[in-house]
């Protein structure tokens, strides 16, 4: 193992880990506020990637500005999709058994996957951004700028979100809704609105992750959401359910793990090894890696 190779792998792991982190963060935010698993979260990621691909030709080639524009567009598409799903699927099932929104979003997952396959075909579609291109030297290694930018995006956005959640009244209201919605309403918080906002933000994160992964691999396809969901779900669990910082850490860790296991153990057995390690982790730390063992109130 040489240093340049190591650096290259590290950057690759952080880039894909950053994508997982964004998916996980969105999933965790939605789960925290609505107490329901959004199983079509991966399809938001996929649909937004396709929508951005469709409007990409109209984007001016403005270098970094174009990249920013792509991210903002993806966030907007994601937020709109999220709001539609919250209103259309989750709100009507608010008082239903826990399994109901899971099954309904599974239905939505099947619907969206097959709709996109029907409209655009189930093959791989090329997805390329004009910026960032090329490589940059990191110590002795030369790594793609794209991967660094993806990793950077996956750090900056959660940091901004963290500030918004802790420093603003709306952020406090969202966290209060997640902890105890009824009491939040007693304080004057319109929890229907905070749920909608949380869902929109969570889905915007999925949308951003969708275009980043499209840029990273250079392709998008109709079933890409399933992997995203499973990896995002795993990252959320690794970090500890309901822990937003943990979700980001879990995503990055999962990405690094995958890259290093594939390089140094076996590319073929990567998934089996990663899942085995996940089970071992859960057996040892049932509350996730970052989650604290809070004594349950009996």
């Amino acid at each position: 193992m040489t240093l340049p190779v190591l650096i290259d792998q590290l950057v690759s792991g952080l880039a894909i880990g950053g994508v997982y982190a964004l998916v996980a963060l969105g999933f965790a935010l939605i789960f925290g506020v609505l107490r329901a698993a959004q199983f079509a979260h991966g399809e938001v990621y996929m649909v937004v990637a396709f929508l951005v691909l469709a409007v990409l030709p109209w984007f001016p080639a403005l270098g970094p500005l174009q990249f920013l524009l792509v991210i903002v567009t993806a966030a907007i598409f994601g937020a709109i999709a999220g709001m539609l799903i919250e209103r259309g699927v989750f709100r009507p099932l608010a008082d239903a058994p826990h399994i109901a929104p899971i099954i309904s979003t599974i239905g939505l997952m099947i619907l969206l996957q097959n709709l996109v396959a029907y409209l655009k075909g189930s093959e791989l579609h090329r997805f390329a951004l004009a910026w960032p291109q090329g490589n940059v030297s990191v110590g002795p290694a030369s790594v793609p700028v794209l991967k660094l930018v993806i990793f950077g995006t996956a750090l900056v956005i959660p940091a901004l979100l963290q500030v918004a959640l802790t420093r603003t009244q709306l952020g406090r209201a969202i966290r209060a809704t997640a902890i105890d919605a009824e009491t939040a309403r007693l304080m004057g918080v319109n929890t229907a609105r905070t749920s909608l906002v949380a869902f929109a933000i969570g889905s915007a994160l999925a949308g951003i992750a969708g275009v980043l992964v499209g840029a990273l691999y250079g392709v998008v396809y109709s079933t890409m959401g399933v992997t995203a969901l499973v990896k995002g779900y795993a990252a959320t669990i690794i970090g500890g359910v309901g822990n937003l910082v943990g979700a980001v850490a879990g995503g990055l860790l999962l990405g690094l793990f995958e890259v290093f296991v594939a390089s140094y153990v076996s590319p073929r057995w990567t998934d089996a090894i990663v899942y085995t390690l996940l089970i071992v982790l859960l057996a040892l730390r049932p509350q996730g890696l970052v989650g604290r063992a809070i004594p349950e109130k009996l």
Binding site: A176, I179, T183
Partner: peptide, 26 residues
Amino acid sequence: LVLVPEGRRVFGELTVLDNLYLGGYT
């Protein structure tokens, strides 16, 4: 009109200050 609910129901994971800011949400 404000209700102090049974069982206190403070937002345990938030700081005391955050709890108070939420009380003044309106």
